[in-house]
């Protein structure tokens, strides 16, 4: 553990919170957006004639949506903002690698996103009388930890594109909804057509989230859960390998095209 520079982690996290997270925009992303998605889910359910909405997908799913949007947008604005105010150049020119900085920042974003999930859980329990009776708590807990890891891996992977160039950065924003669809943030994967279910298999978030939702709905089949966890972790590791390869490419690319400080 000595190789981790705790001072750097602490400093990056506090700056991330002070500069980017504790503002109206981020709070809207992490709190209001999940509330809106949850409301749409529940009102759709009401319009479809259901008396009781599905709280796991509609309410807690809204929290997952908020966590994901928060990671995508905060990461986008982190690097775009740094590029705009000249910070990206200074960070790249320091002996600390941009990859380390991105990893810590994404970790902070994931923690903030976790806050959105906690709020959604609280809303489900205290406003809509959601009960954890019957839920597989240990299964849900482990799945949630793996989900946070998968979110972090995905965030770090996407951050590379933002550093790569301004143009590729804008496309990361468009990935927000497709990932939400393929990973089944507010509906089970079985709702998707077969070909989309096949594609969704490549996203580690999908496996961790499915395991968490099924655990909350009472799934106790250890084999089913273990398969999901292993798949999620395996895919996360693959994503980290790809991230590492990409980071080296990005390091060279950003020093060739001179886009480090261009607005």
């Amino acid at each position: 553990m000595k190789c981790i520079r705790w001072g750097l982690v602490k400093q990056q996290m506090s700056v991330q919170l002070l500069v980017r997270t504790l503002n109206f925009f981020s709070l809207s992303l992490f709190i209001l957006q999940p509330a809106v998605f949850s409301a749409v889910g529940m009102l759709l359910s009401h319009a479809a004639g259901n008396d009781v909405p599905d709280l796991v997908y509609s309410v807690i799913g809204g929290g997952i949506m908020g966590m994901w949007s928060g990671i995508v947008f905060t990461s986008t604005y982190d690097i775009t903002g740094d590029r705009r105010n000249g910070m990206l150049e200074l960070i790249t020119g320091s002996p600390t690698s941009l990859a380390s900085v991105e990893a810590i920042r994404t970790f902070t974003n994931v923690l903030c996103g976790f806050f959105a999930v906690l709020i959604a859980f609280s809303a489900a329990m205290f406003i809509f009388d959601y009960s954890l009776n019957g839920a597989n708590l240990w299964g849900a807990g482990i799945s949630l930890l793996i989900l946070l890891f998968a979110m972090w891996c995905s965030g770090v992977f996407l951050a590379n594109f933002l550093a790569w160039s301004r143009i590729s950065g804008t496309f990361v924003e468009y990935l927000e909804m497709p990932v939400a669809i393929f990973c089944g943030f507010m509906f089970p994967i079985r709702v998707l057509p077969d070909w989309m279910q096949t594609i969704s298999g490549i996203f580690p978030i999908r496996w961790a989230l499915e395991a968490m939702n099924e655990s909350l709905l009472g799934m106790r089949d250890v084999r089913y859960l273990a398969e999901h966890w292993l798949l999620a972790i395996g895919l996360c590791l693959l994503l980290l390998v790809a991230t590492n390869w990409l980071q080296n490419k990005v390091q060279d690319k950003i020093r060739v095209n001179g886009e480090l400080s261009s607005i």
């Binding site: 750097l8 602490k10 960070i91 320091s94």
Partner: peptide
């Protein structure tokens, strides 16, 4: 000071 602390960590 917060800015300088931030860079001090980047420079280890």
């Amino acid at each position: 000071i917060q800015n300088l602390n931030y860079f001090a960590e980047l420079y280890a």
